[in-house]
Design a protein around this nucleic acid. Structure first.
Lengths: 335, 335
DNA sequence: CTGAAAGCGCTAACAT
DNA sequence: ATGTTAGCGCTTTCAG
């Protein structure tokens, strides 16, 4: 940088000013400096800049290292938030972090990142306490149990579940099941989307005098199949299954087939908080409550960057429900 | 840090030594320093450390921002490499970068990251030139056309394709098709896995006097279905389809069904460089050449960190083929 | 409008 | 075994 200054016949400070646009510099001088930078192939040192200015324009999206749960929705958060951050002059990186938040301070201390987006939030997520005590700006994709004081964007699971049941009820269904991932005893126990969905499901079922059960599913296609068997054992007359775990929906179908049920003639299967791509992967294509992954990723990035730039004063509380996508016919059945 | 030193009655240098284990410090002193750190709730400043020591112990896995191609295998690379890096005292972050490598220097300059892992490599990937000129240590998951001078780990696509055809031929198949993603005209054109697989496919088909065709597929389930239709139009007697694009395999099945073909009775479908999880998602379950995603992620992390630590002198050239996983019966067919 | 200079918080010789 | 001290490369008051 000193070299650039010398070559342009200015001081190192002036170079800094043109690089950052911090202060007004004569067009003529600016041009000389830029030319010098070009000639010398000058690349600013991000680390030094960060140390001196206390900001890196890097934000981290926290990825919980447990459970290998890399869902399409997660990927959407990442990609859309990264895009938005980039548009607003920031970099977004996906950072694997222990779900307990133990290794969080290494990264955040000293201002390696300006702010943090937290996803896969649990009802009592330990990471928000850590982040708060570290005094680093953050935004949640998701909500803790009591999130009034926190900036968040989230899927409106309550509305999503109500709409799901509305839809199915309008089709004549009265006997329901909800398939959820079994997170008991794992670090992801207390996963907020599950608990909110389950609570709403049970409430609506009770209020409307419907029949409903909740079935936990293990991993993979096999877990889904086992869940389907358990559901049919508990209620052979069930006609509507809500599946809120992407990787078990295929297994649920197999389990239903194995028990002689046709889909959707005998039993309707609705994939909750999933994606169109995932739904189309099945045979038959599944109807789906599509998660607003991109929208939330964008909102989260905006909320955080607003906070960083001091643009906004109020803390965002943004809820968006999933939208129903009814499967089109898939075509002839496999024979 | 000065406060810690004061409180422990030592110099700031000593604190640095115990923090980094750089030099031997008396157990007694060490204890006093640690106590002081605890009392003062001291958190080292990563950025300052990086500036002074020229290393951050952070490595970046480059994620090409184009095409939304976040495959399960990508996720495996990320998670396994992150784990391994963590075991070896490094942090691994997933960094979205333009596939042309234009914004690479911002991140790498000034030593924000100690090294880089590149994935989704194209035959003439511009990123390796950038990285080379930036003089940042890097390792590829994948290979450029001429990769003799580069450290890489990769899937052995040649062997994988040969094994695939071996397997299917042993089952009596003589007429093949290979489904690939159509990347022509996109930033990912020249994607090495496709080109290597296609070249090997065509060579083996020709050498053995078999019948074969290559079919490009568009996005999603619909792209797969269209590909299946094109394949049947070109060769109604085709009996074996290799699918090297995860999101079109479901569509391929639908296309085959629609044309009255049974799977696997009439036509075998083999998913190439995919995962068990993905294969089990289908009906029927697909046989699969499973990509060694975790193994490669680990190897890549090791190779890079060896390079950073100066542990290893020779540059790694590690190739691993996919392994055949024959689908078990799925159970009764949907009716 | 531009320059001088004091740090940012830590590391790593070099001394002792 | 511990302390001194000169930077790492840049930002940012404060003068001029």
């Amino acid at each position: 940088m000193q070299q650039v200054a010398d070559r342009a016949g200015v001081s190192i400070a002036t170079v800094s000013f043109v690089v950052n646009g911090t202060k007004y510099v004569t067009p003529a001088t600016t041009a000389r400096v830029r030319a010098a930078m070009r000639d010398l192939n000058f690349r600013g040192n991000v680390v030094a800049r960060a140390l001196a200015s206390r900001r890196t324009r890097i934000i981290a999206l926290l990825f919980p290292t447990t459970g290998n749960r890399f869902s399409p929705t997660t990927a959407q958060f990442f990609m859309s938030a990264a895009e938005r951050a980039s548009e607003r002059g920031h970099h977004l990186v996906l950072w694997p972090v222990d779900p307990a938040g133990d290794d969080l301070d290494d990264l955040v201390s000293g201002g390696l990142v300006d702010g943090v987006i937290v996803m896969e939030v649990r009802m009592d997520d330990p990471r928000v306490a850590v982040l708060t005590s570290l005094e680093v700006p953050f935004t949640l994709i998701g909500r803790t149990r009591d999130s009034r004081g926190l900036p968040f964007v989230d899927i409106d699971f309550e509305t999503t579940i109500v709409s799901s049941i509305d839809h199915l009820e309008s089709l004549g269904h009265r006997r329901f099941a909800l398939v959820l991932e079994d997170l008991e005893g794992t670090p992801m126990a207390g996963y907020a989307p599950h608990l909110r969905a389950q609570a709403t499901f049970e409430r609506v079922i009770a209020e409307r005098g419907l029949v409903g059960q909740v079935a936990p599913a293990g991993a993979g296609s096999d877990g889904g199949r086992a869940a389907a068997e358990a559901i049919l054992a508990a209620d052979p007359d069930v006609t509507a299954v809500l599946v809120m775990k992407d990787d078990s929906s295929a297994g649920v179908l197999v389990g239903l087939y194995a028990a002689g049920r046709r889909v959707p003639e005998d039993v309707s299967v609705l994939s909750i908080a999933s994606s169109a791509t995932h739904a189309d992967q099945h045979y038959p294509r599944l109807s789906t409550m599509v998660a607003p992954g991109r929208e939330l990723g964008i909102r989260a990035a905006d909320a955080l960057i607003d906070q960083l730039d001091g643009v906004s004063d109020d803390l965002p509380h943004f809820l968006l429900p999933c939208t129903l996508r009814v499967a089109e016919s898939t075509g002839p059945a496999p024979v």
